[in-house]
Structure formats: C-alpha cells, structure tokens
Amino acid sequence: MSVMSEFIKGIYKENPVFRLALGLCPVLAVSTSISNAIGMGAATTFVLLSSNIIVSLLMLLFSKILSEGGQKSINKIRIPMFIVVIASFVTIVEMVMSAYFPVLSESLGIFIPLIVVNCIILGRAEGYASKNPLIPSIADAIGMGIGFTLALVAIAFVRELLGSGALLGQNIMSSNFKPVLLMILPPGAFLVIGLYLALLNWLDLRKKES
C-alpha cells in the first residue's frame, strides 16, 4: 500500500469512530460543541502522531540491536512501553496547553489526561506503528487523527445545533427554538453516533447493490 492510501484510509474507509468504533468515550464526552471537538481532535492527532513516530522508531531500534530471540522477549513488554510513551506525550500536551492555551485547556479539562486511555492511540501503536516503518506510520497517524477529528466535528455539529441552537458558539436558531437538552447529554451522543453509523452502512449497501 502506498503512503497516500495509508493516509486516506483513516478518513473514510477505516474511520476510527465510524468504522473501527474506537475511542468512543472521548467522542461522547467532548462532542457537545464544535470548538471542543476541534481542540480534542487536534490534541489527539498530536499524541497519535508523536506516539506512532516513537513506537515505530523504538521497534526499528530493537530490530537493529537485538537478536531474533531478544526481539521476541521484548515483545512481552511492548504494551507497557507503548503506554509510557503515550502517557508522556499526553502529559506534554496537557502542560503545554495549560501554559499557552488556557481557554482551550479549561474547556477540555479532564478529557486531556484521558487521551492516555483513548483506544485509538494504543490501537494504532500496537496494530500499526509497531509493525510498520516510520513514513507509513506517520501517514497512518495523520490520517487517523484527521478522521477522528472529522468524526468528532460531524457529531458535534448535530449536537451543538440541536442541543444549544448554535454553531461554533454563535446562536443561529430563531428565538422560538427550544434547545433539545438531551442532545447535549451523553444519550444524545449515542443517538447521533448510531444514526451516523446507520447512514454510512446504508450508503455502503447502496453502493454494493448498484
């Protein structure tokens, strides 16, 4: 597979939220407004990219300096190593964000530290970066990150519009519009994700039939 197709697949064909159904908890939590979705998407993409790079390089290093047996035994501790790498980058994001982007860090709050347990990141480190060279790993991380961000924005678009009658914080509904409180709460996220999944599956089915 070419680098380009590695990059493209994360956006639609293997979209982490809608296709792989990974990392749904942060999606539920921060997709209440588009600005939150963009901030979370950017933070996750950064962590994904950095951890994919380091994991790919680390595995390359081990394959150069260790014997066959050594590599096999190192495999036993790969998950703890990945977690250390990911947690370090998340901590870096958290510190940098609260130092230089205080507004964003406030609205994302607890969900920044929770990027550590976002399964997309460990999933890509384990499932992709540890088995592939550096360049495809970078393409994979950026593609997945953008796919995650787009999915978040797509969900946040519906939730913010119906739940608060606004887009990007700007009121756009008429004053008669009564916001649907449910959409702001977690059940609203479940509903929207389910409907999006159904829509994508329906599109796929139609494509197959024609």
């Binding site: 050594g70 036993k76 501790i77 250390v84 370090s88 870096i92 510190m95 940098v96």
Partner: peptide, 21 residues
C-alpha cells in the same frame, strides 16, 4: 533484560517530562 529496557524507557520519559515541566 526486560526490566532494563523498561527502566531505560521510563527514565528517558521522566527526564523529558521534567524538562518540559
């Protein structure tokens, strides 16, 4: 060997984090 590798990884991570902190 395994604990050596894990120790090196965590020590490097701790050093980087301390710098940025």
């Amino acid at each position: 060997r395994l604990s050596m590798v894990l120790t090196i990884v965590t020590v490097v991570a701790a050093f980087v984090l301390a710098e940025i902190y």
